[in-house]
Amino acid sequence: MKRLLTMLAILLLAAAAAAQTFPARPITFTVPWSPGGGTDTTSRTLAAVLAQSLDVNVNVVNRTGGGGVVGHLALAQAPADGYTIGAITVEITMLPHIGQTTLSYVDYTPLGLMINNPSAVTVRADAPWDTLDELLDHIRANPGELQASGTSLGGIWDLARIGLLLEADIDPDAMPWVPSQGAAPAFQELLAGGVDVVTAALAEAASLLGAGEVKVLGVMAPNRVARFPDVPTLKELGYDWSIGGWAAVAAPAGLPDDVRATLADAIEAAMASDEFIEPLTAAGFTLQPMNADEFGTFIQEQHEVNGRLLEIAGVTEE
């Protein structure tokens, strides 16, 4: 009996010790999009750096499906003990407004922003407009003539179009949206002459830009993008508007404070490391590291701005 008690006591002690030194076992990192995409690549790079600094395995698991809802849901419903963290993306500030999920940013503990790929105004290389102002003047003079595409109706690049036109004091209906299944089909339509403008991510336009098939009139980012120093920002052109598709790290809501602090510090340090910055910059991503607190404010703003734009896009639930 005495021996049994001793053993129990030792076990309890061990358990307590384990609880103090988070993390004591491998961490699961969920990704709501499929392998090979931007969110996946970024997450895998971060996970590799985190595994070194936290000295445990960080296993990346793709939980895809449902337009991102499945993966976001899986993270929100995981136990809030720090052993399940994951990527959340801009969709989490959009999906709740269109009634596709009851999830929103309040279901997560924000840990940091990784990348924010800005939208760009892209037209065919032989298009008659060389500057953004020329394009906007054309839209103003001929409302409804030009059409834009880039993703589904009410998707992130549609919001980029609406935000830009509103900022330029043009009715968003003056350049209506043609839905597409992502950026690549939209660019195919652009080349085939089906649409006139694409507002997808600058990174998505990179190879076409290199091939001389398209030109980029402006990027919707606060600063110029390092890989495309010649592309002006909208702010420089006189329009105070920026938008991008971002991916961030979060944990389920209600994470204990000490665990949150450990993870937030490790992630902030990881995002400042060369192992994270170099390969991702080379791959054409726009890094916009934010720590947990900055990102917490950012995601709240995003939730409100995107809600307003989605209402204008006409896809919010009545």
């Binding site: 090979g36 091939a211 098939e213």
Partner: peptide, 29 residues
């Protein structure tokens, strides 16, 4: 290869490798 337009997931990944290595697709490739 000649337009920089990915035909499927595989070629999208290939274009990603191009960009990463600073190679420009297109007729000039």
């Amino acid at each position: 290869l000649s337009l920089g337009l990915p035909g499927d997931t595989t070629t999208a990944i290939v274009l990603g490798v191009f960009i990463m290595k600073g190679i420009t697709p297109g007729p000039l490739l």
